[in-house]
Design a protein around this nucleic acid. Structure first.
Lengths: 231, 231
DNA sequence: ACCCGACGTTGCTCTGAAACAAACTCCTGA
DNA sequence: TCAGGAGTTTGTTTCAGAGCAACGTCGGGT
């Protein structure tokens, strides 16, 4: 395996306050791996052996019920840590991570976690900040799920993806990774049928444009209104 | 204010590996306060000035939508830390805490958090473990909310409360704090009407007994079946 | 002792969205 | 080049549960 370049980590929040030598040292313990779209990186409940940093691509973090239904808890974007069970003293992953697009991630054995946090205090700080944001996010999703009607939930979900990964195109904001109607229904606790209908309706109204696995938000403002967000 | 007794903290997970002198020191910085039922301890979004330990009573942790709907994210039982925003590098509380029953809590200024975690490593460890469990719990609630029908959700919610706070009586397991139908509907994203109907039906079937604000689960096993839990 | 407000029950109506069903379209790989 | 599967669309039916309404009841405060 080629030696990893230091510029990979420079500027990423978890490593922002480290110097070149420290980054070098961290990288020397890392394993880099590519995941095809749809690949599972680790399973809910599995022994947490490594923790990860997403370099490129997007992930879906998924939970499955005993009954087999699943929901997408959140998405991970490049530059974010994930699978950091050790930060919470867990020895097992609390959810499954799946590559939503072809992705590249670094990983380290959990045994290095204590060293990392001890040696590089900023690293721990940033990890916990990430966790805090994620906790807040999930609470918000939960609240929304419990109180909002389907159309609002779907609108928020699309907006969330657009905000997190959106790239500007001439037509609007495009979600950077493949999303199926089924995926959106798994984010919102509805059916793909309903999502399909909503997306068709929005397309007719000029709010979004979509092809298979691919969504462009052409009129974000109206989608925000649909999502019912308060100013 | 009377000097706090060391036995208050002895044996509680966050302090389990501390010696008498350390506990003394921690207590000397603590403020103890009583909260009447219904009192708000802190508000979502408020400046996180203190972190807390619940000594006695029960709390509801609540999130409110811009539209005014609210849902109960989780309950806190005696011995648990709460409002530990500093652990996640947050300077604001992510949810509101309300006394579900008359409660007593200790609290410390957030400025002491770094000292605490530095001086007493076990304290940090336990805090993060708590957070990890809570994150897992919320993810589970979210999944359930998105995939399960109302009856199952209500059954799980009642069971969760019974497990967390249940005290055995001659008739069954009694939830240790006051709960209204509205409260349960706020945990499950339904209406108090539906909860009332379900509880009445279950009572008729001999699964629960309930009076105002007061629920006894007389047949936990059948409730588990209703909740749809897998073995 | 009484009144008022909070809490609970129950009946009825109505609708949002799930469930069921059937095609259609695109893409992939043999 | 064609077959098959994955993803999408659209129509129709069905029903759980929200919404509305009205009443019953408990308990705490003056």
């Amino acid at each position: 395996m080629a030696k990893l370049d230091e510029s990979l980590l420079t500027g990423l929040p978890p490593f922002s306050m480290l110097n070149r030598a420290q980054i070098r040292e961290i990288l020397d313990h890392a394993v880099s791996r590519r995941y095809d779209e749809g690949t599972t990186i680790f399973h809910e409940g599995a022994e947490a052996e490594r923790f990860f940093l997403l370099l490129d691509g997007y992930l879906r973090v998924v939970r499955t019920t005993p009954g087999g239904d699943q929901i997408i808890v959140l998405h991970i974007s490049p530059g974010q840590l994930f699978g950091i069970a050790p930060a919470l003293q867990r020895d097992t992953y609390p959810a499954t991570s799946i590559a939503a697009a072809e992705s590249i991630a670094l990983s380290w054995p959990v045994s290095l976690w204590p060293d990392f946090t001890a040696k590089y205090p900023g690293f721990a700080t940033e990890s916990y900040k990430t966790l805090g944001q994620r906790l807040g996010q999930i609470q918000e999703t939960l609240t929304e799920m419990a109180t909002q009607a389907v159309e609002k939930r779907v609108a928020s979900a699309v907006l969330r993806m657009a905000n997190q990964s959106g790239i500007k195109t001439e037509n609007g904001i495009e979600i950077a990774f493949p999303v199926t109607r089924q995926n959106i229904s798994d984010m919102t606790g509805t059916t793909l049928h309903t999502v399909s209908r909503l997306l068709s309706a929005w397309q007719k109204d000029g709010i979004v444009e979509s092809t298979r696995k691919h969504i462009v938000v052409t009129d974000p403002h109206r989608l925000v209104i649909l999502s019912g967000a308060q100013d």
